[in-house]
Design a protein around this nucleic acid. Sequence first.
DNA 1: ATTAGCACTCAGGAGGAATGAGTGCTAAAA
DNA 2: TTTTAGCACTCATTCCTCCTGAGTGCTAAT
Lengths: 357, 357
Amino acid sequence: MDLTERKKKILRAIIENYIQTAEPVGSKVVAATPGLNVSSATIRNEMADLEALGLLEQPHTSAGRIPSPGGYRVYVNELMEDYRLSVQETQRLNEALHLKMRELDQVIDQAGRVISQLTRYPAFALASGSSRVTIQRFDLLMVSSDSFIIVVMTDTNVVRNRLVRLPSDLSEAQLQLLDTLLNTTFTGLTLDEITPELMRVASHAAGEAYGLISLVVSFAMDVLESLEQRTVHTAGIASLLAHPEYRSLDRAAPLMSYLSEDQDAGRFPVPQGDPMEILIGPENVADALKDTSVVVASYDIGDGMRGVIGVVGPTRMDYAKITARLSYFAAGLSRLFEQGGLPPGDEGEEPDDPLRR
Amino acid sequence: MDLTERKKKILRAIIENYIQTAEPVGSKVVAATPGLNVSSATIRNEMADLEALGLLEQPHTSAGRIPSPGGYRVYVNELMEDYRLSVQETQRLNEALHLKMRELDQVIDQAGRVISQLTRYPAFALASGSSRVTIQRFDLLMVSSDSFIIVVMTDTNVVRNRLVRLPSDLSEAQLQLLDTLLNTTFTGLTLDEITPELMRVASHAAGEAYGLISLVVSFAMDVLESLEQRTVHTAGIASLLAHPEYRSLDRAAPLMSYLSEDQDAGRFPVPQGDPMEILIGPENVADALKDTSVVVASYDIGDGMRGVIGVVGPTRMDYAKITARLSYFAAGLSRLFEQGGLPPGDEGEEPDDPLRR
DNA sequence: ATTAGCACTCAGGAGGAATGAGTGCTAAAA
DNA sequence: TTTTAGCACTCATTCCTCCTGAGTGCTAAT
């Protein structure tokens, strides 16, 4: 977008003012911007030009101007200055990164909550997975004569377990046998490759132990499935109501429902290429997001997985602040995982300071 | 509450009408109730009496009456007929009980989502635990020369694991030693009983392995902590907006914030004694719930834990329907767990039909 | 190219009347 | 003594209309 310096200044002034006040901006207050020594009449002419270019809009004839989605686009691409995080902000962000490390799922969920609190917008978080996971190894641990623990580990180093009680007793030797059989037959297979026939063949080899095998294998399949199935976590939906554009329920309700709808991923944008992406209003694919903006960042989880974290808000969003915070936080998460903090499963120890180089 | 038959009929008619319409009920429509062959003037006199008894309220002089919290109380205690679930409803509820069995936490979360969908009210779900959990057993599984899996099992049969990578190599024998040491020293202890001193003593016994021991033990402590810490899951917050009492943001926003606030339990009521409890308006302890009603049910998880699941809505709630659905669902959950469906950790196989006797 | 000035537009708020649902009370009927 | 018909009264709600003021576009002067 080729604009004169003055037009840029005016556009920027209007957008930043509107971001603060949520009120249409008139020529008079723009004229008052320092460094812009022209009269309001001149501003009016310029504003008319900017409107013709599709960068501004007028809610009604006798109102000031508000930025159009295209205007915001120009702003984030060319006009926006990097927002410098204050010391307090980095401190808060760093503190927030001391996440309690548990299951990956819980970490993602928690990260979403935290970023929602920090930005005051609803947030979503998900992991976009490695889709071809296989079981690398089975372990069966005897607990008592009629119960044992299944531990499975995938090739992405996720470890999951389940305790099983049986109606009948089982000897240590039988368990050993089962263990070997599982490890020779069912390792290295993806979800689709584990067929009922395969299970029948295996149980034949093991004699009567079909029930046991199906028990363990179906648990393994559950694990694989849960790793492939991408679920979204959303947090802070209520914070929408703090923003004037959602003071009317007609605007708030559909968006809130969309955000809290069933947790299937794919409804939310994921950054392509760049680690951070801004989607303004109609640039969103989902209808419910057509007049909201989404800022989304990704971070590296390791083992071929990427975490995605983003916030949703009105197109009038403080893009500078939000992108600064989000990218800092995402970078922190990347480092956290990279440091061996906690990879896909639940591995590694708790790092002291996740942001220390 | 001792009321004449006629007063009861009138009160009930008013409450049920108000539950349907959310509009103050006038004497005329009450007079039209079948089985009540008196004129509206008589009804007016009776209504004045009921108001004097504190069972009805008048929003303003020229409006009909609405039930007071006390009125609802009388209604749920004495007047309400059991709502008979239709065949479709039991079918839907049964289907909903086919929860994917994973971690207990996830099951609880999912149950909350489901009940929120079924009732169209926001729901909360939590597990009220057994507070003195101890580690019953440690297992260390070698993965490669520099990594192993910690598996811990608590006395409540919860099993958790974590994969650990080490900077240096480790022999199978060392791991065995560590295993024995952990099992002799740290089993049967509650969270507070695991002291730093104890860890120092143990590592002395093991030679130089302090780092390793603290690694495993702090994981165990994490597990104990996560089991004692009761987190609430809330779902369906946006469904509030569908009800006319929350069409105004002043009413909706505080409640929504309360529901989505940080996930600490204790903010939500838990049934005492009875497996189901109804708290109407000011009967709630929490300020934010003072003009909402909460219907809450509990179910048995096993191993000394109880699940709690409830819905939150306006005092004008269809108590008959909600209690019927909630208690049916809670009973289903109880049976699900009892059947060995999935106890605290992640045990047992997936049942075919959780409601089959 | 810029600016002062002026007529014009229009959302939003204030005030006021009309509407109608619903009440309480009284006096008559059962 | 209880019930009912009738009537005057109340008051939230809706729908006008009018007014105000912020902000514009245009024109003519600088």
